[in-house]
Write a protein that binds this DNA or RNA. Structure first.
Length: 93
DNA sequence: CTTCTGACA
DNA sequence: TGTCAGCA
């Protein structure tokens, strides 16, 4: 499938963590909890895309609201699905 | 860079 | 439960 530019991973975990103001260990935890799924290089190192950074910012927001990682996982899943549905809906009008 | 483990509020 | 530090 053709990938959108925003979905292309370019940042190493150290860079991504620096940008969003999070610890590297946290980013790995978020991935393990299913909140995120950054790309991987052939060597197995994570590559965070612009979309991933946006997602991390949202995680920080929801975290500040008092949601736990399980709740955030649900919210992100719903928001992603909603965005997809909206895109399809606007495509038909 | 990776995963895993333990300590702390 | 989430965060952070240290180790292999």
């Amino acid at each position: 499938m053709a990938e959108h530019p925003r979905a292309r991973g370019v940042y190493a975990i150290s860079v991504a963590a620096e940008i969003v103001g999070m610890g590297q260990q946290n980013l790995r935890l978020y991935e393990r909890k299913g909140l995120l799924e950054p790309g991987r290089t052939d060597g197995g190192t994570r590559r965070y895309s612009e979309d991933d950074l946006t997602r991390l910012h949202r995680i920080a927001e929801l975290l500040a609201l008092g949601l736990n990682l399980s709740g955030i996982r649900l919210v992100l899943a719903l928001e992603t699905e909603n965005a997809l549905l909206k895109a399809k809906l606007s495509h038909r009008t």
